[in-house]
Design a protein around this nucleic acid. Sequence first.
DNA 1: TGACTAACGAACCAGTTCGTACATTAGTCG
DNA 2: CGACTAATGTACGAACTGGTTCGTTAGTCA
Lengths: 221, 221
Amino acid sequence: MTTVDEPARSGGRLRDAARTRAEILDVATAEFARAGYAGARVDEIAARTRTTKRMIYYYFGGKEQLFTAVLERAYSVIRQAEQELDVEHLDPVAAIRRLAELTFDHHEAHPDFIRLVSIENIHEAEHIAASEELGRIGSPALEVIRRILASGRKAGLFTADVDAVDLHAMISSFCFFRVANRHTFGALFGRDLVAADQREHYRTMLGDMVIAYLTADRASD
Amino acid sequence: MTTVDEPARSGGRLRDAARTRAEILDVATAEFARAGYAGARVDEIAARTRTTKRMIYYYFGGKEQLFTAVLERAYSVIRQAEQELDVEHLDPVAAIRRLAELTFDHHEAHPDFIRLVSIENIHEAEHIAASEELGRIGSPALEVIRRILASGRKAGLFTADVDAVDLHAMISSFCFFRVANRHTFGALFGRDLVAADQREHYRTMLGDMVIAYLTADRASD
DNA sequence: TGACTAACGAACCAGTTCGTACATTAGTCG
DNA sequence: CGACTAATGTACGAACTGGTTCGTTAGTCA
């Protein structure tokens, strides 16, 4: 990650490894998200930085490793957000709805992250596979879901016997699709899924969908 | 080998514009889906064809237009599949479930198409925007959904007052995510969403979800 | 202070990539 | 048949791109 120990000096140092590294990562994130892995230009990233291309190779080794570092930092952000989830004081139904809404909000707030994930999937997650860090991180949200599901089942509120990972996939799929595919969807169906005045509508729709699924009377099958 | 150089072609003509064009499109589809727009190599496409790069420029004009042509054909395939939808003889609940399942099946059967859509979204649907053909096609599935929703509401089966486009987005999001993000999801959560032995599970889950949403008692909100 | 190292910059290079100029041939039609 | 056009193949090049070589400077510490 970018957190190399901050040198004691504070003022605008000319030479500041941590700052340079972080700036490269910021610019690289935007560039990769903009143009995809192959479309991203190392020269372009360097040009938008206060440093030079030499430094990218000095700190990261190459384009491939730079992209991996970008992914690592992007995932660490979402992991951190998930760690701050505080919904378990709510009743199970409200907790799940709140969790879904927070996932919804996070996707909307981080379109670059969504693009990076799309790009990484085009490349069959090879960078995640190559990263030690990304390989062993779990999802804090998953644990939260697990606990809410357990208590909801215990209270007889949730009829569906869903697995936490599957529920996470269900919630994520809606949030992800809305942001990731907004361009083709908009072009083909003439509807902007991310329009500001539709936000509450889709947020509610997601919650309704998840709760309906969890509380449905499955006997009618 | 078997066919070194056959001067006198039997059935297949030596010069066949339609065939050459189609072969280029086939190979280009695979190549773009494999590596993304920028990552795809025109030389590579040419090499895998029985013709040369010259022909790609002769028939399509350039890489950009070739990709647009690839998208146009890919979308025409799904449009055609949707036109063969035959679910309206079923009762509304069964019809929606069947429609969802067919969408599910189509996504699973056409991973290259999913990748192309992901790629096109990275490029903000600029090729769809540039295509006259793609701009004015509607979705046959949308009309089907509209009719089923209307009859379901009329029969008092569907409590939710959903819009057809939104329901289409809901169904698509789950199907799309499962295929498009299977690599990162698998790497991060250790679960293969496209594993053969999980297929029925997710297919059922999708149907349950959609039906639960449509038939839920929204009064409890 | 002066040597030593981390951090940095400019210029360069070798391989690649899209695109094209030029030459040629198969098929068709009067 | 012979001219004419659609279709095709070869070879090449200008621009670009990831990566490197070589040299410089700021900061640190003995």
